[in-house]
Amino acid sequence: MAAGGDHGSPDSYRSPLASRYASPEMCFVFSDRYKFRTWRQLWLWLAEAEQTLGLPITDEQIQEMKSNLENIDFKMAAEEEKRLRHDVMAHVHTFGHCCPKAAGIIHLGATSCYVGDNTDLIILRNALDLLLPKLARVISRLADFAKERASLPTLGFTHFQPAQLTTVGKRCCLWIQDLCMDLQNLKRVRDDLRFRGVKGTTGTQASFLQLFEGDDHKVEQLDKMVTEKAGFKRAFIITGQTYTRKVDIEVLSVLASLGASVHKICTDIRLLANLKEMEEPFEKQQIGSSAMPYKRNPMRSERCCSLARHLMTLVMDPLQTASVQWFERTLDDSANRRICLAEAFLTADTILNTLQNISEGLVVYPKVIERRIRQELPFMATENIIMAMVKAGGSRQDCHEKIRVLSQQAASVVKQEGGDNDLIERIQVDAYFSPIHSQLDHLLDPSSFTGRASQQVQRFLEEEVYPLLKPYESVMKVKAELCL
Rank of each mutant, 00 (worst) to 15 (best):
L222N: 01
Q320K: 06
L179M: 15
S448G: 14
S447Y: 14
Q241G: 03
T330C: 15
E279W: 07
L124V: 14
M380E: 09
H86D: 05
D192L: 08
D317I: 03
R171C: 00
F208K: 03
V254C: 10
N357Y: 06
S306R: 01
R194M: 06
T202L: 07
T52I: 10
D144I: 15
G169F: 01
M380Y: 05
L222D: 07
Y34T: 01
G169D: 03
V115H: 03
G288A: 08
G54H: 12
K295W: 01
Q397A: 06
T167I: 02
Y21V: 00
E401K: 13
L130S: 12
I351F: 07
L165C: 04
Q51H: 07
Q177Y: 13
T382A: 10
R245L: 03
G203W: 03
T354G: 15
C483R: 14
R196N: 09
P471I: 15
P16L: 12
S448A: 14
E462M: 13
R234Q: 10
E463M: 06
S151C: 11
W45K: 01
Q205N: 13
T38V: 13
Q41G: 05
L331N: 08
H91P: 00
Q375N: 05
K199G: 01
D332I: 03
V115E: 04
K284T: 15
A335V: 07
I369N: 08
V138N: 10
Q164V: 07
N68C: 09
G116E: 01
V219G: 03
P10L: 14
D144K: 15
K233C: 09
D178F: 00
R137T: 15
P162G: 04
C305W: 02
T227L: 03
S23H: 09
T354P: 02
S289N: 00
E417L: 12
G214S: 09
H310C: 07
E370L: 13
K470F: 14
C113V: 11
G4D: 15
I62P: 01
V262P: 01
H107D: 00
A344M: 07
V247D: 07
L174A: 14
R149D: 04
I427K: 01
I238H: 09
D430G: 04
Y21C: 00
I386Q: 03
K295T: 04
K233Q: 13
C266L: 13
I237Q: 07
V189I: 13
R270M: 04
Q439T: 07
Q61W: 06
A431Q: 13
L165E: 01
V457L: 04
Q41A: 10
P153V: 05
R309I: 07
Q458A: 12
Q439P: 05
S306F: 05
G54P: 01
E50P: 00
K367C: 07
K187Y: 11
D144R: 15
A150P: 02
